[in-house]
């Protein structure tokens, strides 16, 4: 079986873009600490957002500040995880939706061939969704370890990385 050209690069796109990795970990920290149904709602909202963002890309939306939005959202997620805040589900779902839209908008296909570009967009959706689900699952398995200390430390690291990256982008 031969996979459509562009699908693999689309699948790997969220994992090969550092700002996407940061936001996926940040959002995973939020989703993985919640009960299963709430975590699933967050992942679903993220998927919906990515689809919307990729749809906007497919319909020809130009350059957007999506990268900055991703880093700002990662900062928010990191702070909530570091401070071990109980995040209300509506807020978490909204943040997930925004993250998804921004990730989609920040993932323009690199191919000019229509079939390849479509395969890349589908791959990006599947890759982002799969990555978030895996991070959330991993977080849920270690959530109780050392009273959640690892997750709080990870949250502080994500926050610091996102804040510094934002500052550097604006300084440039």
């Amino acid at each position: 079986m031969v996979l459509p050209a562009g699908l693999i690069s689309g699948l790997l796109h969220p994992l090969s873009t550092p700002s996407h990795v940061v936001v996926l970990i940040g959002l995973g920290l939020i989703a993985g600490r919640m009960v299963l149904s709430a975590g699933a709602a967050i992942v679903a909202a993220f998927a919906l957002g990515v689809a919307a963002g990729l749809g906007a890309i497919a319909s020809g939306v130009g350059e957007t500040p999506a990268s900055d939005v991703l880093l700002a959202a990662a900062t928010l997620c990191g702070v909530m995880a570091a401070l071990n805040l109980t995040v209300p589900l509506p807020l978490a779902v909204t943040v997930a939706l925004i993250c998804g839209i921004a990730l989609g908008l920040d993932s323009p296909p690199e191919s000019i061939l229509l079939s390849e570009a479509v395969a890349m967009l589908i791959g990006t959706l599947c890759g982002g969704l799969g990555a978030l689900a895996m991070v959330a699952f991993f977080v849920s398995t270690i959530a109780r370890l050392w009273h959640g200390l690892l997750l709080r430390v990870a949250g502080s690291w994500i926050t610091a990385i996102a804040i510094l990256a934002l500052a550097l982008r604006w300084a440039a």
Binding site: P18, S19, V22, W157, I161, L164, A165
Partner: peptide, 14 residues
């Protein structure tokens, strides 16, 4: 100033 923003930040923090 030309440094990669995320790579620098991640390396620094980690």
């Amino acid at each position: 100033r030309g440094a990669d923003a995320i790579a620098f930040s991640a390396g620094f923090v980690v």
